[in-house]
Amino acid sequence: MKKTLVALAVLAAGSAQAAEVYNNDGVSVSISGSAEVQYIQDFEQDGTNVDATTRLDDGDVTITTSIEMTDDWATVAGLSYDLATDDRDAETDKLYVGFESSEYGTITFGRQTLIADDDGIGKDFELGDLQYFGTQIESADDVVKYVYDNGQFYFGLSHDLDAANGDSTSGVEVLDGRIGVRFDDFDVRLYVYTDDYASGFETTAYNLEAEYTFDAFNIAASYGEAEIETSSGATFFDATYIELNGSYTVDKFTYAIGYAFVSEDETDTDGDNIYANVVYQLHANVRTYAEIGYKDIDNTADYDLGYLVGMEVKF
């Protein structure tokens, strides 16, 4: 197989760290996980009291398997548990099966993230607060997802079938996709998102993103729009999103700064958000970081600066 199980783990779990624990007769099993804890002071608006607190940002364990069927086809499956829940109970975050081909791509079925989970160019941890359309559905139980990537051209499509089985996204059908191309150090892609609620509300959104990497620098920009219509066809929400950011890496440090702007037509409201952070890579699997953020929204009380420090460990 040309595509490795580590590549599958990146696709399925969003983690670049995965350990192969079994490989025999074409059957591979890999495990990965992460733990991330933050101390955060979120944005506090005048007249409110938001206490700084410890936040469990991430805690998951993911198991993936690949069973070779032919020289170019494999059956794949994934199981992921989210441990950072408020009630201390483990939740099944992903449970899917599918087929993978190094030539034709990967198709998976079941509980998993949608393509929309990958959109956005933000380099923030928590304080990028006004970025592209944060209310879209990014994970569901009844998802069919196809992903193709030949190194230069990549494409993805996912559909939440909404089987009305009482899961957290019951009553809404989602169809979204991505198309992109890489030219050496330049990467440009377009995300498109639609949903249709049983109540009659419908969303249409897109985000055009571009990134350029040169030496130790990375710069990125995006432009997106999102519109929500009621069952009668009236516009309920109509917003434009713009973001610019950049980062610089030297030795084990990465410094990043970003700016996000949103303009919502129906309420005639604009918002600005600036964030900056520094990351120290203690080990390939361990990083610590600190971040500050500022935001301002028209016709609302002022916000105090937000800040956080955190640590992430992957395996």
Rank of each mutant, 00 (worst) to 15 (best):
40 I>Q: 14
166 G>Q: 07
286 V>H: 06
212 Y>E: 04
284 A>M: 03
179 I>Y: 01
157 L>N: 00
51 D>L: 15
61 V>P: 08
183 F>P: 07
199 S>R: 08
122 G>R: 03
3 K>I: 11
103 E>F: 09
74 A>L: 08
25 D>T: 11
54 T>I: 12
192 V>N: 06
76 V>Q: 03
26 G>F: 11
68 E>P: 03
84 A>L: 10
48 T>Y: 06
16 A>M: 11
252 K>N: 15
186 F>Q: 00
149 D>R: 03
160 D>A: 08
100 E>S: 15
101 S>A: 04
264 E>P: 00
92 T>I: 13
154 Y>H: 06
129 D>M: 11
305 L>V: 15
226 A>C: 12
170 S>I: 05
298 D>M: 10
202 E>G: 05
170 S>A: 08
249 T>E: 07
291 E>M: 10
228 I>Y: 00
137 I>M: 04
144 V>L: 13
116 A>G: 07
293 G>R: 01
172 V>T: 12
129 D>R: 10
308 L>V: 01
19 A>G: 00
163 A>P: 01
122 G>Y: 03
121 I>Q: 03
84 A>R: 06
255 Y>M: 07
197 Y>W: 14
56 L>V: 13
31 I>W: 07
88 R>G: 11
248 Y>K: 04
190 L>H: 08
269 T>R: 15
149 D>C: 04
28 S>C: 06
308 L>Q: 05
211 E>G: 12
221 A>F: 04
102 S>G: 15
61 V>D: 09
42 D>K: 11
114 L>N: 13
181 V>G: 01
229 E>C: 13
18 A>P: 15
304 D>K: 02
24 N>Q: 15
138 E>L: 07
117 D>G: 03
275 Y>I: 07
99 F>M: 13
160 D>Y: 00
209 E>W: 02
281 Q>T: 10
237 F>T: 14
237 F>P: 09
159 H>K: 00
311 M>V: 13
177 G>E: 00
137 I>S: 12
148 Y>M: 03
288 T>C: 11
267 T>M: 14
51 D>R: 14
108 T>G: 00
98 G>W: 09
197 Y>K: 15
2 K>A: 15
250 V>K: 02
115 I>G: 04
35 A>E: 14
89 D>G: 10
156 G>L: 12
206 Y>G: 09
155 F>A: 02
83 L>Y: 05
150 N>I: 10
185 D>F: 05
14 G>P: 02
292 I>V: 13
11 L>Q: 14
262 V>N: 14
229 E>A: 15
208 L>F: 11
10 V>Y: 08
158 S>L: 00
315 F>N: 11
221 A>D: 08
270 D>T: 04
51 D>C: 08
114 L>E: 04
292 I>H: 03
206 Y>S: 10
268 D>N: 15
217 F>H: 01
48 T>W: 05
34 S>F: 12
59 G>K: 12
306 G>H: 09
139 S>C: 14
270 D>C: 07
179 I>R: 02
250 V>S: 04
13 A>I: 06
247 S>V: 07
304 D>M: 00
163 A>C: 00
15 S>Y: 08
305 L>K: 04
179 I>E: 02
275 Y>W: 14
120 G>P: 08
74 A>N: 05
314 K>G: 05
237 F>H: 12
108 T>W: 00
150 N>K: 06
147 V>W: 13
207 N>L: 01
35 A>F: 09
63 I>M: 12
223 Y>H: 07
123 K>L: 15
133 F>C: 08
287 R>T: 03
